[in-house]
Amino acid sequence: MEKILVGLKRVVDYNVRVRVKSDGSGVETDGVKMSINPFDEIALEEALRIKERGEASEVVVVSVGGSEAQQQLRTGLAMGADRAILVVTESELDPLTGARVLMELVDREQPGLVLLGKQAIDNDNNQTGQMLAALWGRPQATFASEVVLNGDTAKVTREVDVGLESIDIDLPAVITADLRLNEPRYVKLPDIMKAKKKPLDEIQFAEMGVESAVPVANLQFEPPQQRAKGIMVDDVAGLVSALKDKGLL
């Protein structure tokens, strides 16, 4: 195929223990480490491997967000993507509007495959890929743990609750990456230098001609309930009697 489009979202790094602001207006993101959403890194790695096998000729990474998302796109270029597109918007993006932006990019770029993460680990929505597939009227293969391309179709193994499901889909399609799809490569210093010369286009959201969806309003944020402090026991006998006390044995 000609082209693979990969969505990269800039999110709080997965190692950061996120805290709710004391006034409940949101979560603390000032000075916090930001990264590519881990599932998106896996999606990109898969796209790169497909290209390296000669089954695609170009990998385009796209992000929708503030201009800071340039950093994540540059990392994507350093990993091996050929080109990047940033759709700039300073407002908080809801999944349906995000999917509409991706749909507009699909119309402009005509990819043979769109690879996204199964879920962005900030809002844990797990919606965008499915929505894009619906708007596009194309197949979706979510939670992918293996992708085998066969010309105009793909066989995708999906991680589902009971085990592994495999489906056969026509291309173009949307595939969303689960953790075990692959292990993303590390970026090397020379690649970072090279990535600086690769094209990164910015398009203003307003220029996309995309209608914003009605967002679900976030009224208030709170920390999760803390569990009561537990006890330590010294040995198996202590554990057994503690379990008996709770009526669990």
């Binding site: 679900v216 976030n218 920390p223 999760p224």
Partner: peptide, 10 residues
Amino acid sequence: IYAGNAIVTV
């Protein structure tokens, strides 16, 4: 959201 580190009222 955030892997359960925050709860949001929507």
